[in-house]
């Protein structure tokens, strides 16, 4: 037996997209599709051993994963065991003349690269939105116990830091700031704009890493997920890790001096301009408009 294996992650919504993409790919490549959800406490060693046995036994040609933090932790190891490179964070799948091509981002979303996997098995992880389509049907998801070979990693209970004092998920308007702000002292420009708009302040990861704003104001895959009426992205390039946290925003305004910044791909309104010139004028104009 051979075909496509979709490795799903319990409780992760990307799993469903991955399964649908696997079915679509199966139809296009003429391959059967199987899906498995590893069970039990996650360790990189345990999941790798278990899946390696399964893939070897059934000789799968393509193995698809959702691009989650957990997958990032073990899938490269699994692919290496088959002497294959894991192709991570795929944003598009294309089949042309029976040949699979995949697209992934380079340079934090500033460039896309199309890649042709060589040899088998092919190991891929899919980013949110990689597959948009309406393939029908469903497949049986089998559970697979994590292999019992004594894993070297000893995981403890998962935990969250102290409860978040800031809940951005309900904010109707958010002004979000990225590296373009350059210095902590310049954050007053963001505070002024947020004040004028009656907005909450959010940030991309590097701003919080620098300690300029608290971690709880970070939007993105490792931070909060937001869905405001208006999201104003200032000096923020829009790496995919950030975009997944704000894709629910109804209207996006982007102000960035790089016209190729990926944030403009998701923006409704864009200004390619120097934020240090635009922000004071914008804040003043909003205050004037509000009377």
């Amino acid at each position: 037996m051979s075909g496509i294996l979709a490795v799903l992650e319990a409780g992760n919504k990307l799993s469903i997209e991955t399964m649908v993409a696997a079915m679509d790919l199966g139809a296009k490549l003429g391959l059967s599709v199987h899906s498995v959800e590893p069970d039990g406490v996650y360790t990189a060693d345990g999941f790798t051993d278990g899946l390696a046995d399964l893939i070897r036994a059934k000789q799968f040609q393509v193995v698809l994963f959702p691009h989650t933090y957990q997958v990032r932790d073990f899938a490269p190891k699994l692919a290496t065991r088959f002497d294959r490179a894991f192709i991570s964070d795929v944003i598009r799948l294309r089949v042309d003349g029976g040949v699979l091509f995949v697209t992934r981002q380079l340079f934090q979303g500033k460039m896309n690269a199309e890649i042709q996997p060589l040899g088998e098995p092919v190991f891929l992880s899919l980013q949110a939105g990689a597959y948009r389509g309406g393939a029908g049907g469903s497949i049986q998801v089998e559970t697979m116990p994590a292999a019992s070979a004594a894993p070297r990693q000893k995981p403890e209970e998962k935990f969250r830091e102290a409860a978040r004092a800031v809940d951005l998920s309900a904010a109707p308007i958010i002004v979000s700031v990225g590296r373009g702000i350059k210095e902590k002292e310049n954050l007053s420009l963001i505070e002024d704009l947020a004040g004028a708009l009656g907005a909450e302040i959010a940030a991309s990861r590097p701003i919080c890493d620098n300690g300029w704003l608290p971690m709880e104001r970070q939007v993105g895959s490792s931070g909060q997920t937001v869905a405001p009426k208006l999201y104003v992205a200032v000096g923020l390039s829009g790496a995919i890790q950030h975009l997944v946290g704000m894709q629910g925003a109804k209207t996006v305004v982007a102000i960035n001096k790089d016209e190729n910044a990926p944030i403009f791909e998701v923006a409704d309104y864009g200004m390619c301009a120097d934020l240090f010139e635009v922000l004071p004028a914008l804040t003043a104009a909003i205050r004037a408009a509000k009377g």
């Binding site: 294959r84 042709q116 060589l118």
Partner: peptide
């Protein structure tokens, strides 16, 4: 190589 880069493009 496990894969070949076909090309790069602006998104």
């Amino acid at each position: 190589a496990s894969y070949e880069l076909v090309g790069v493009t602006l998104p």
